[in-house]
């Protein structure tokens, strides 16, 4: 699969929100107004790409049973790389790495780029616990860990970037729809979050049209 197709696939076909149903809390939570939605979308693109790169490094150098594993290099005398297979720790390691990364990024931005920090606001810390970010990290390992290191790293970052772009796209569309829904006479029982979920479901139905676009 070429890089362009990989990107299209993760943005439109295997969209994190509409096809994998990940990251629904920020999707519903901040799709009320367009400027906020855009801010959240940009923050997710940034964090997903960064998290993909960092978790790739953590997996490749700390967890995976390869010759590049740091523990194997230090303590590997008389042992095989298979003795240093820590992949069962990947979920908890990734959560820790992502949370730490987001906090670091937040502190860095607060100090160095206050304007961007202000515009991202509350959304940056919120992403710490965004399942789409953990999802993309785990998916990268599942999809690309068998490729050569350079290839796998490049595809990992591309998939992280594409996941964020897809998230921004549906968040943007959703925010416009919800602004329009403010003027609709939605039944009281469905106002707010319920109608947002119904919108998400119908959007997911519409996005099914892209199925099979990338073989």
């Amino acid at each position: 699969m070429s890089y362009a197709l990989l990107f299209i696939s993760i943005v439109l076909i295997n969209n994190f929100v509409l096809a994998k149903f990940l990251g629904l809390c920020p999707f519903i939570g901040v799709s009320r107004r367009r400027p906020e939605a855009m801010g959240m979308g940009y923050a997710v693109i940034f964090v997903m790409a960064m998290a993909s790169a960092v978790t790739w490094a953590a997996y490749f150098y700390l967890l995976a049973p390869t010759k590049a594993n740091v523990f194997y290099r230090i303590m590997g005398e008389g042992r095989t790389p298979a003795d240093f297979d820590f992949t069962y720790l990947q979920t908890i390691v990734f959560i820790l790495v992502i949370a730490t990364l987001v906090q670091l990024v937040e502190m860095f931005l607060m100090k160095m780029v206050p304007a961007l920090y202000k515009s991202l606001g509350i959304y940056l810390p919120l992403i710490t616990t965004n399942c789409a970010v953990l999802g993309v990290a785990l998916l990268n390992i599942k999809d690309f860990s068998r490729l050569s290191p350079a290839e796998s790293f490049f595809r990992t970052v591309l998939q992280g970037l594409g996941g964020g772009v897809g998230f921004l796209l549906v968040l943007f569309l959703m925010s416009g729809i919800r602004e329009r829904l403010d003027r609709a006479e939605v039944p009281p029982a469905l106002k707010g979050v319920p109608i947002a979920f119904i919108c998400a479901a119908l959007m997911a139905l519409a996005f099914m049209g892209f199925l099979g676009l990338v073989k």
Partner: peptide, 17 residues
């Protein structure tokens, strides 16, 4: 695409925008 026909999905997708 994966479907022989896309009229239904095309209109639904454009309804979204």
């Amino acid at each position: 695409g994966g479907y022989p026909e896309g009229v239904c999905y095309s209109i639904l997708l454009m309804n979204t925008v």
